[in-house]
């Protein structure tokens, strides 16, 4: 592997990583690593990860990392940040961890304006357990728990977490949705999030991501699916308050 093109904060001994071929996580973590390198904050970062595919990042980087439990990365990182406010607390989760089992904590962190950098990777399914329906799954989408397509009646439409958080977050918070189709935008969102954390406010970046394994898509179809996601989940900064 040509490590010259890889972020310096990568832990080389854990590469090649364990994510599936074509997984969006690897692309996102690379942008996160590059941003942390560029800002020279790897000594300050405490990286917390949730359960789901995100857990495979437990030894991805050379900085302090704690893999937590499902839906609990936000609470742990709140404890980290409160105990040591000089640290940059990054909470990394999937859409199941953030929008289902851990939603209560995510909403309250936004509401209290806890100075954590929350990063949520949305691939519209529970990928680690084999592709079950999530709150982000679209009506009609086939998953292993919606084999004839998700029915919006009884199972919900699709949850727009950013819209939800923007209604409770403090004016000083930073909320943005980006997509793996645009890595530069991911980096700029990360920078804005770290700036916000520096000013002691909550930031949240949702990243629309691809999951070829569970979507059962090839490269072209994966990005086709992503385009559909970008239509339904607007890729934009979220205005706060009235």
């Amino acid at each position: 592997m040509n490590y010259k093109t890889m972020p310096k904060c990568y832990k080389n001994s854990s590469k090649p990583h364990f994510f599936c071929p074509g997984c969006g996580h690897a692309m996102i973590l690379k942008q996160l690593g590059s941003t942390i390198d560029e800002l020279k904050i790897s000594a300050e970062v405490v990286f917390g990860i949730d359960i789901g595919c995100s857990l495979l990042a437990w030894d991805f980087f050379d900085f302090d990392t704690i893999q937590t439990h499902h839906g609990r990365v936000i609470p742990v990182m709140i404890g980290v940040k409160k105990a040591n406010p000089k640290k940059v607390a990054v909470a990394y989760m999937g859409d199941g961890g953030g929008y289902a089992i851990g939603l209560q904590s995510l909403i309250h962190a936004a509401y209290r304006d806890d100075p954590v950098v929350a990063i949520l990777v949305n691939n519209t399914n529970y990928a680690m357990t084999g592709g079950q329906m999530a709150p982000t799954t679209f009506p009609g989408e086939i998953t292993t728990t919606s084999s004839s397509g998700k029915k919006s009646s009884g199972f919900g439409n699709y949850l727009d977490g950013l819209k939800l958080l923007s209604s409770v977050a403090d004016q000083s918070a930073y909320l943005e949705r980006v997509s793996v189709s645009n890595p530069r935008q991911i980096v700029s969102a990360f920078k804005k999030a770290f700036e916000t954390s520096d000013k002691n406010h909550f930031s949240f970046i949702e990243i629309l991501s691809i999951c070829p394994t569970n979507w059962k898509t090839d490269a072209a179809d994966s990005f086709e699916f992503l385009k559909n996601m970008e239509d339904k989940f607007p890729v934009q900064k979220y205005p706060l308050g009235e």
């Binding site: 405490v46 937590t68 609470p75 404890g79 980290v80 409160k82 040591n84 209560q104 904590s105």
Partner: peptide, 26 residues
């Protein structure tokens, strides 16, 4: 002294874990 009234007991327990990881008695 650090204090947070959390949204539930689950969060309280995990926040204690986070602070303890940083070396703070919690």
């Amino acid at each position: 002294l650090i204090f947070l009234q959390t949204e539930d007991e689950t969060t309280a327990g995990f926040a204690v874990n986070g602070s303890v990881l940083m070396g703070v008695k919690a």
